[in-house]
C-alpha cells in the first residue's frame, strides 16, 4: 500500500459511488451533478494510468461540454416552475438482477483471465507522442472525425432550430 494505491482507491470510490448515485437518484438535476464527480474520478484514473492529455481532454470535453449540454437538456425539457423534476423508473427488479449477474460475470472473466501485463512505467508527458501518432498513423481517422464533428454541428443546429412561421 503506497501512495499510488491510496490515491487509486480514493478515485475509484469517488467514481463508483457517484455513478451509483447517478443511476439511483430520482432528481435529474442531482444526477447531472453526480455525473460531474464521476467524470472527475475517471479523469483521476486516467492520470494514474499516465494519460495526462486524455485526462485534460476528459475534463474539458465532458465537464465543460457534455455536462453543460445535458443540464441544458434537463432545463429545456422540464417545466421547472410547475412540476418537480423527477424521473420515473421501469422494471427495477429484473434490471437489478440482470445487471448484477452481468457484472459478476464480467468481473469474473476479467479477474480470472491471465492478461499479459507488464507494469508499465509512467511516461513523462504523452502530448507530443500522441500528436505524432494522430498525424502519422491515425491521420485518416483524425480527418474523418473533423468532418464528423462538422456534420454533427450542422445536424444538431438544423434539428433543434425553431420552425419558421
Amino acid at each position: 500500500m503506497n501512495l499510488y494505491d491510496i490515491i487509486f482507491y480514493i478515485f475509484a470510490a469517488i467514481t463508483i459511488l457517484s455513478a451509483l448515485f447517478v443511476v439511483t437518484t430520482r432528481n435529474i438535476v442531482h444526477s447531472a451533478f453526480f455525473l460531474l464527480f464521476t467524470f472527475f474520478g475517471v479523469a483521476g484514473i486516467y492520470v494514474l494510468l499516465g494519460a495526462d492529455f486524455i485526462a485534460i481532454a476528459q475534463i474539458m470535453v465532458y465537464v465543460g461540454g457534455i455536462l453543460i449540454l445535458i443540464l441544458f437538456g434537463v432545463m429545456l425539457t422540464n417545466k421547472i416552475t410547475s412540476v418537480e423534476i423527477r424521473t420515473g423508473t421501469v422494471q427495477m427488479i429484473p434490471a437489478t438482477i440482470g445487471v448484477v449477474i452481468f457484472m459478476a460475470a464480467v468481473i469474473a472473466i476479467m479477474v480470472m483471465t491471465n492478461w499479459k501485463s507488464e507494469p508499465g512505467l509512467i511516461p513523462l508527458g504523452t502530448t507530443k507522442d500522441l500528436g505524432h501518432l494522430l498525424i502519422n498513423d491515425y491521420v485518416l481517422i483524425f480527418e474523418l472525425l473533423g468532418i464528423l464533428l462538422l456534420i454533427a454541428l450542422i445536424g444538431a443546429a438544423s434539428i433543434a432550430r425553431r420552425e419558421q412561421e
Binding site: 455513478a19 447517478v22 435529474i28 484514473i45 424521473t87 445487471v99 468481473i107
Partner: peptide
C-alpha cells in the same frame, strides 16, 4: 478492469430503468 466493469454495469442499469430520455 473491475472499475470499468462496475461503471459499465451501472450505465446499463441507468439506460434500462430510467424513463427520462436525458437520463
Amino acid at each position: 478492469l473491475v472499475i470499468s466493469a462496475v461503471l459499465f454495469s451501472l450505465g446499463i442499469y441507468g439506460i434500462v430503468t430510467r424513463k427520462n430520455a436525458v437520463m
